[in-house]
Design a protein around this nucleic acid. Structure first.
Lengths: 226, 226
DNA sequence: TAGAAATGTAACATGGCTGTAACATGGAAT
DNA sequence: ATTCCATGTTACAGCCATGTTACATTTCTA
């Protein structure tokens, strides 16, 4: 789950961008001016910053420079928003260390694509690949294969994520809200009973190996550690 | 994806060159002085170095000598940037081990052409040639020929790269973003669904052999390795 | 420079997945 | 034992991820 900070003084535009980002599944932080933006950037260390070039008070370029000169924030990619009239060409944008820029007026699609592209760049080449074994269950994250009782089990996306989550925290109880956050995403709105349904499906598919998924009445679920 | 290190103390020029290189699809590292440049060269081992002759602190020629005397960096080609006034002629440039040099002021086009030429020269005569076989598919990287079910298949560049990418990491799931990065390039901006389209085209061309390209719903694609 | 090939995007199709609700079950407290 | 409430289970309608095709645009090639 990636966090994106948007620094933009036009409230309408800020809200619009924030809304679209959230719909794409990002966690969004906002700031209406440079000072606040800097503050938020330093305290929350977002994964990416969308920064308006023209801001009251501190200029966007200055914010960019400050962020790029701070050890904690220097590696956070920045996408600049520039108005067409502002004869800021690419070179100036990159001069202060921005990673990409989008010219206003921009389409939502374009901004989203560029954000995704910049985030993609900073993503590690190889994600952690591991093989987890709990009881009769084996999860190979690299191959995305789950085995129970030496039989390969075909799981759906949600089932897989849920199982992985339980397995990674084996031995510890997790309540439904926590599971919803970790598996379904922080901005998921819905019934907590959904978790129960998926637990049932998992247990069914896993057969007797599924017995290690224990219900902790009143608290949630856990996977036995033994 | 080739990585190029630019060592240049004039910030404007550095950014301009970096920008142009990125647009050409290179990954770019930068350094504003010799010390930093040497450091970066040793740690990141770029594929090529663009080096300004006149630098504060250590001279460009010295950096060049140091790099060429270090076992790890000696094979990295270096292109020197020299001002016209600096009566460094070819002889001096090549004396310290530079592979080519460009006289300021230079056009972007000229620099790019020389970089490409030097990179081409330094490329090993035969890249690692190998024949990969997965299921009914055979990829001969040396001859750039793909066979499926004993029939030769004509693939486009993108299809070939995509297939090779999947085959090289056979067995492991790769998400669309990773594929985009590896096949389409580091700074590609576009829809991730593009991957799907090309997967379809691949499967179609490969016929029944294409069945080993599996969809992993919610995660990406993988090629069976059994 | 014309024509062909390749490429990326959009639009539509489809089938599996998913969340919800409704009912069933069983444990715990009284 | 009875009641309540948390959890188990099941069915189903809508949705969403992916498959597929068509098309406009770009790139290649002769």
């Amino acid at each position: 789950m990636k966090t994106i900070l948007v620094i933009e003084d036009e409230r309408d535009l800020l809200d619009l961008v924030a809304f679209n980002l959230e719909r794409e599944g990002y966690r969004v932080l906002t700031a209406l001016d440079g000072r606040d933006g800097l503050e938020t950037a330093k305290t929350h260390l977002p994964d990416l910053i969308v920064l308006d070039l023209m801001l009251p008070g501190i200029m966007g370029t200055d914010i960019c420079k400050i962020l790029k000169n701070n050890e904690k924030t220097e590696s956070i990619p920045i996408i600049m928003l520039t108005a067409k009239g502002e004869e800021i060409d690419r070179v100036v944008g990159f001069e202060v260390g921005a990673d990409d820029y989008v010219v206003k007026p921009f389409s939502n699609r374009e901004l989203m694509l560029r954000i995704r592209a910049v985030l993609r760049r900073s993503e590690p080449e190889l994600k952690e690949e591991k093989i987890i074994t709990v009881g009769l269950i084996t999860i190979d994250t690299g191959r995305h294969v789950v085995t129970a009782d030496d039989e390969e089990i075909i799981l759906t996306t949600t089932e897989y994520k849920l199982l992985l989550n339980l397995a990674e925290r084996r031995g510890r109880v997790q309540n439904r809200d926590l599971l919803l956050k970790n598996v379904w995403g922080y901005n998921y709105v819905g019934d907590t009973r959904t978790v129960d349904t998926h637990i049932t499906r998992l247990r069914t598919k896993l057969g007797r190996a599924g017995d290690i998924i224990k219900t902790v009445r009143g608290f949630g679920y856990k996977m036995e550690d033994s």
